[in-house]
């Protein structure tokens, strides 16, 4: 591979109780690219994504072996600061999960919990930057006091992304971020992601193969907890090495 990986997993296994959800995953995620993880439901793609910011810690009965290396550090090491990890590896979820509070509250939440800045002007600058980053500034600059739950879904999802990038993360994880959006809103979010990859390493889990083909530079295909194939998206979609990958992308199952 011709890049130095931003994230690298080594023999990563994950068990829910006795169920083996991830089997010996070895993947190298390129920096400042969009990497798509595709595969049928229940193949473990979301579980893999949630390893990168240790969201699986919240679930009881989970056992993880192996390593996830981000910036030369295994994030499962005891001396890793979990809260800083999650700040550096932001996450956007399937459904827009803005807090039941104002746009302003949503955006400043991360700043407050990490005590990043106190100065009001600086905070306002950060809000403007992050909203401009997701193309919402013109829509929302006069509505910062408005409850975010009353925005259109697409704007809510953009706001969720803004809420992440205001913390200056290195990596953004997206777990099927467009699954509740209509096709036009989906295209807009995709445009946004293409723009954001200039500054961030992006990993997106998606059901939608066209989406993966449209936006990602690299793709991984997962099946039943295994990473079957990982390569440039062009190759995965035109000339996959594994027959199971080919079956999936040609729509024979899934």
């Amino acid at each position: 591979m011709e890049f130095f990986p931003k994230i690298e997993t080594r023999n990563l296994n994950l068990y829910y109780g006795s169920f083996s959800a991830l089997k010996n995953i070895n993947i190298k995620i390129p920096p400042k690219e969009i990497t798509a993880i595709i595969g049928p439901s229940g193949c473990g793609k979301s579980t893999l994504l949630r390893c990168f910011n240790r969201m699986n810690d919240l679930i009881e009965n989970v056992k993880i072996t192996g390593e996830v290396i981000i910036d030369n550090k295994n994030i499962f090491d005891k001396n890793v600061n979990l809260l800083n990890l999650r700040r550096n590896v932001g996450m956007v979820f399937q459904r827009p999960n803005v807090f039941d509070a104002s746009v302003y509250y949503n955006l400043t939440f991360g700043i407050k919990i990490h005590r990043l800045m106190r100065n009001k002007n600086k905070i306002n600058d950060a809000i403007q930057m992050s909203l401009e980053g997701v193309g919402l500034w013109n829509d929302l600059k006069d509505k910062l006091k408005k409850n975010a739950r009353y925005l259109p879904l697409e704007q809510q999802q953009r706001l969720c992304i803004a809420r992440v990038i205001i913390l200056n993360p290195k990596i953004i994880l997206l777990d099927e971020p467009c699954s509740t959006l209509d096709p036009i809103a989906t295209l807009k979010i995709e445009e946004l992601l293409k723009k954001l990859k200039e500054d961030y390493t992006i990993i997106i889990v998606t059901h939608n193969m066209q989406q993966a083909a449209r936006i990602s530079g690299w793709s991984g295909f997962m099946l039943l907890g295994e990473l079957i194939e990982f390569n440039r998206t062009k190759i995965i979609f035109t000339n996959p090495t594994d027959s199971r990958t080919e079956d999936y992308i040609t729509g024979r199952f899934g």
């Binding site: 990890l85 932001g90 509070a101 919990i113």
Partner: peptide, 27 residues
């Protein structure tokens, strides 16, 4: 209170107490 709110807070690096105080209670 929807679980997704808590996930969002944890995902942004909030502690359990911050999540309770700033997200769960207001909601």
């Amino acid at each position: 209170v929807p679980k997704s709110f808590k996930e969002a807070a944890f995902g942004l690096g909030a502690t359990r107490w911050q999540t309770l105080w700033r997200v769960v209670l207001p909601s």
